[in-house]
């Protein structure tokens, strides 16, 4: 099993609350994503067993939602908003700056497996643009200086 006892318990607890089992698909894959960092065929299989829904239905739903990476990503998944409000305040320049700092192109992972850089659609943080999300945390009102500090902090955490 890829999913830990804790994740399984959490999925079961959530699933028990819904009137139909299928409703637990999204909550279950969210728990799996939070633990593993991405989704895979194996995870669809495990989720299917835990909540008692055919694996094809789990995969069908999961593949619709772009928030869940479908292959391994770095320890820190950097998602930069490139929608309009962020772009007006330098999102394109932010992406270039991150590419330069991390020495990768968007869509790539650093060789040490620490950072994956991707662009995403509106993160709903438009009045604090430009913004990026790293794993679950939002980083707002970004400047070059802030980006330097954030990357340094994450590197020291790893």
């Amino acid at each position: 099993m890829i999913l830990t006892e804790e994740s399984i318990a959490r999925i079961r607890e959530k699933a028990a609350r819904y009137p139909i089992r299928k409703s637990a698909i999204l909550p279950a894959i969210t728990v799996a994503y939070r633990q593993v960092g991405y989704l895979s065929e194996e995870i669809y299989g495990e989720v299917s067993q835990i909540i008692g829904v055919p694996v094809v239905e789990v995969a069908e739903a999961a593949t619709f939602y772009t928030m869940f990476p479908k292959q391994p990503v770095g320890k820190f998944l950097i998602q930069v908003c490139h929608n309009i409000s962020c772009s007006l305040l330098g999102a394109e320049s932010l992406i270039s700056y991150l590419e330069e700092k991390l020495e990768i192109k968007k869509g790539e992972t650093t060789p040490d497996g620490l950072f994956t850089l991707v662009t995403v659609e509106c993160l709903g943080s438009c009045a604090t643009a430009p913004v990026m999300q790293i794993n679950q945390d939002y980083y707002e009102n970004l400047t070059r200086e802030k980006v330097d500090g954030i990357l340094e902090e994450l590197r020291s955490k790893s």
Partner: peptide, 9 residues
């Protein structure tokens, strides 16, 4: 129930 979505507009 608090239901979390999958990032779809």
């Amino acid at each position: 129930i608090v239901h979390s979505g999958g990032g779809a507009y």
